[in-house]
């Protein structure tokens, strides 16, 4: 993403150079499919083939210690067990997905609001490109440490005897420690927001930098208020960035289980966790089946997002 933002700003400065480079490639005359092949092969071997294997395995049978190659829908039927008979009570898999999608939505809203605000500040309030780049890089600093460390560092802060509870008690705001700060939906949402807001900032900032500033001036000259400019001009033009950021956040949260475990005290269900539990019990076919279900649900969400904005057309 940083490359594309950099090139976006660079492209304006030197369109000629880019054109020259394009011509140079044309002269070499390699057909397009050969140029695409290295990446295509990587995709084939490390994405397409493993995915096909996962789908195949999800239809295999299994026992305590091995997979039995045959065709059975056992892994799927058992996963969806009780989904019709238990109604109106929700079955396990629906409850799990409800919980996962709920977090997805909450995290999407919080990262979008914060990410959009940060990007807006960077793009429209910071005057010089140098300063923009400096501040943008500052945003990446947290990424110098690992995901898990950034997550775990919340625990001493939010715990029953953590810093926040200590401060609240010292200030006599509460007489008993606040329990919902840690190992709760709150802490999971907080950690997700902290971890993934940057994935919103980058594409939205990228979109904002492409907005022709003369449009903003025109809106101002035509008497639009700041709010009207934001709502009628900037947000519509940022849509591709918002959708790309949303895809990042949604896919990561849908497949996550470590954040759920560490921040939720392993008590909150998530789609990824079901796969993990099955894998740990050596039940590979149901793990594969749950992975396939997760993939389908996530793809459906992404297709839905693409319906709202055609990302390819907008880029």
């Amino acid at each position: 993403m940083t490359v594309s933002t950099a090139s976006a700003t660079a492209a304006k400065a030197a369109p000629l150079e880019a054109g020259a480079a394009r011509k140079a490639i044309d002269r070499v005359g390699l057909p397009g499919w050969i140029q695409a092949m290295p990446f295509g092969l990587v995709f084939l071997f490390f994405f397409v083939i493993p995915l096909i294997l996962v789908v195949i395995v999800s239809f295999w049978d299994y026992n305590d210690y091995e997979m039995l190659p045959s065709f059975t829908t056992r892994s799927y039927t058992e996963t969806f067990e009780g989904c019709l008979t238990q109604l109106p009570d929700l079955c396990t898999i629906l409850k799990t997905y409800l919980s996962t999608v709920k977090f997805c939505f909450i995290v999407w809203v919080t990262t979008l609001i914060i990410g959009f605000t940060v990007a807006y500040f960077l793009a429209f309030y910071v005057r010089t490109v140098t300063m923009q780049m400096v501040l943008f890089l500052v945003c990446t600093i947290p990424f110098w440490t690992s995901n898990v460390i950034r997550m775990i560092s919340w625990i001493p802060l939010l715990g029953r005897n953590g810093l926040i509870n200590l401060a609240l008690e010292r200030a006599h705001l509460v007489d008993k420690p606040v329990e919902w700060l840690l190992y709760s939906p709150f802490s999971v949402g907080l950690a997700f927001t902290h971890l993934f807001t940057f994935f919103m900032v980058v594409p939205i900032f990228n979109s904002m930098m492409r907005i022709d500033r003369r449009l903003v001036e025109a809106a101002y000259d035509s008497g639009a208020s700041a709010w009207q400019t934001l709502w009628n001009l900037i947000i519509p033009l940022c849509k591709p960035g918002i959708v790309i950021g949303s895809i990042f956040v949604v896919t990561i949260v849908m497949g996550d289980f470590i954040t759920f475990d560490v921040m939720g005290g392993e008590q909150i269900a998530s789609a990824g966790k079901v796969v993990e539990t099955r894998l740990n019990a050596l039940q590979f076919p149901p793990a594969a089946a749950n992975a396939v279900i997760l993939l389908v649900v996530t793809l459906m969400i992404i297709v839905g997002l693409n319906r709202i904005v055609d990302v390819r057309k907008e880029l």
Partner: peptide
């Protein structure tokens, strides 16, 4: 122990986590 009904138990455990 690993139970004879291990597979069933693991499914119930997932249900427990989701409850």
């Amino acid at each position: 122990a690993v139970m004879d009904e291990n597979d069933y138990m693991v499914r119930k455990w997932n249900e427990f986590i989701a409850s």
